[in-house]
Computed example of a mutant assay.
Amino acid sequence: MHEIKVFENGPLDVEVRSLRKDGQTWLVLMDVARVFGYRDSGRVLHLLRDSQYIQADEDIKEELGVRGRAPYLVNEGGFYRLALSSGRPEAEPFQIWVEEEVLPTLRKGYEAGIDVLEETQARVAELEARNAKLEVAAKKADEYAEGVYHTMLRYQKETDRENRFQKEEWEKAKDFWANAYMRMREEAGRICEEYGISEDRLPIV
């Protein structure tokens, strides 16, 4: 959407509509032609070079509120060309007004827009650089977390393996001492039977 600026001059009883398109200032040709005394804005096209005017597209036409055929727009070079070609004394005050108020105001607004654009672009670049650093930091954090997870998993496996080993060794020890105790009881019983001694007199539980 284009920002349409309307400049009015009460003493001269004139109105000029303007806009910015593709980084260039354009004035509505019918407004300029009316003040310079050109009754038919379409006929003044032959006074302009092809690079000094364009026909508005449908979007601009709707924004200007124009019915019928899309209006023509004239740039600064075309404006000065029409001013010189007019030759009407009453056109001079209008030319001065446009030169000293309309065009400088448009340029100032455009330069302010450029400043805002550059500031925005710098801010975007700063945020992109910061996001890039955050992405690197996040990647390192993920790698560290993954390393910690695998270390803990490996430690858990080793602990489980050690616990299983200790349990197996404990079971083996119990079996060994149980078997040793049984063999000792059997040997003690044999000795008691051989010598006619009661097992109750032996200090073996």
Rank of each mutant, 00 (worst) to 15 (best):
R43W: 07
T25M: 14
A33E: 01
S18I: 00
V14E: 03
L47R: 04
G37S: 13
W26L: 11
Y38I: 11
Q24H: 13
D50H: 05
Q55L: 10
L48E: 06
E15F: 02
V35H: 11
G10F: 01
I54C: 11
K21C: 07
M30Q: 07
E15D: 00
E15Y: 05
Q52E: 15
G10M: 12
L27H: 02
I54E: 15
D40F: 01
Y53E: 01
V32T: 06
A33F: 04
R39F: 09
Y38P: 04
G23L: 10
H46W: 00
T25G: 10
A56K: 01
P11Y: 04
V35T: 15
S51D: 14
R43N: 10
G37H: 10
I54Y: 08
L29Q: 07
V28Y: 03
K21S: 11
L19R: 03
L45D: 04
W26I: 03
R20W: 10
S51P: 01
R39W: 04
E15C: 07
D13A: 15
T25A: 15
L29C: 11
R20A: 11
D40S: 09
Q24L: 14
V16G: 02
S18R: 01
Q24D: 07
L27C: 03
L12W: 12
P11N: 14
P11F: 07
Q55W: 04
Q55P: 10
W26C: 12
D22R: 11
R34T: 09
V28M: 07
D50R: 04
D40E: 13
R39G: 12
K21P: 02
R20V: 06
R49T: 10
V35W: 09
T25V: 15
L45G: 00
R17D: 02
S51L: 06
V35Q: 12
